[in-house]
Design a protein around this nucleic acid. Structure first.
Lengths: 197, 197
DNA sequence: ACAATGATACAGACCTGTCTCTACCATCGC
DNA sequence: GCGATGGTAGAGACAGGTCTGTATCATTGT
């Protein structure tokens, strides 16, 4: 009776799962509607009954990715309650691990913004809004850690974060995970003085 | 007798100029052949007589960009002969300026790699080869500057470089130019000990 | 019987690449 | 001098494919 889990899920979920995997792995513009419906075993009308358009599907994909990223961030931060400096460092260690994952293909939001240049594209707006949210979170951590210049530390760390995404498998620049965490630690320690361990 | 310079240039140059501007500003996949020939005032057959295919044109665009980037690098480095530490820092200061230029739209090679995911695509290969060349150059500078761990410093600096490209206008993360140069200086000085000024 | 879904055909737009035809202009034979 | 010739380039039609999105019909599970 019970089939494979994927077939039991409602059509909308199967579509979104397939679209997310393909969009991330092969790019948004490179993946057509026909490919998505073929790979998810769904009728085209089931897709267009659940999503207004491809753009709408792309937005749903990005929104789900934002939620996943946010949950990941919360999980990492929760491992060092009350210690913002350790939280920041842990984020970069976790990022380094994610970059080494075989399925890693760069930052989905940066890639989406690179593919969708039209400033009016709602998917692009989603990606940019997310980046701004990450910056705000980093900034709050920098303030909490007592950085001498939180703005600067926050900007530096986001540069590093973006660089780590870009230089990972997306550009296959070899093992850079060590460099990510060490550079972040150097910048954090340098900016927070030697106050409170 | 003498017309505008643009009209006097041979067709191939006009095509390449137009394609480079459009590819960089709007993305490679977003710009079609018809747009290029319309904007450069050239016949379609003139394009296909000078370039085998669109892929070939994309490769020519990237090759020219590589040459321009290489010349830019040489110019910056030449300002501090025999002083690799100053050369590295100057590269990041120059990069910060370039990021603030109104026409800046991210790293053309990173964008190309994000748009062209097929590993067999020759344009993608060009972009990745160029990134590797940049790393080698950075590595040579790190060695010449007497870094304690040149591999690590080189990796960190390239992370920073990629991050600066990604976090610039491409993601409009506000003024980060100061952060780029200061982070680079902090990493360089930290890695080179306090030896030779 | 009914609602959701699969399958498929189709319309309209766009994209790459080919083909034909014409115009211009420099060079060469005479 | 001067007309013929050949190379370069503009204009536009066209073929073949792909993409998004719609409409129609069959199927299945309850």
């Amino acid at each position: 009776m019970a089939e494979a889990a994927s077939a039991r899920k409602p059509a909308r979920d199967r579509i979104l799962d397939t679209a997310a995997e393909l969009f991330y792995r092969e790019g948004i513009r490179a993946v057509g509607i026909d490919t998505i419906i073929a790979k998810s075993g769904v009728a085209k009308m089931s897709l267009y009954r659940n999503f207004e358009s491809k753009d709408d599907l792309v937005c749903a994909y990005l929104e789900r990715s934002i939620a996943q990223h946010s949950a990941w961030w919360d999980r990492v931060v929760a491992r060092h309650p009350g210690d913002p400096r350790a939280q920041m460092k842990a984020l970069f260690v976790a990022l380094a691990h994610w970059i080494d994952h075989p399925k890693f293909q760069g930052c989905p939001f940066t890639s989406a913004a690179a593919e969708l240049r039209d400033p009016a594209n709602p998917a692009r707006a989603l990606a940019l809004t997310h980046k701004r949210m990450v910056r705000d979170r980093l900034h709050a951590l920098a303030v909490a850690a007592g950085a001498d210049d939180p703005d600067r530390l926050c900007a530096q760390l986001q540069l590093l974060m973006e660089g780590a995404y870009a230089a990972g498998r997306a550009l296959d620049l070899g093992p850079s995970n060590d460099a990510v965490a060490s550079a972040a630690a150097a910048l954090i320690d340098g900016a927070c003085g030697q106050a409170r361990p």
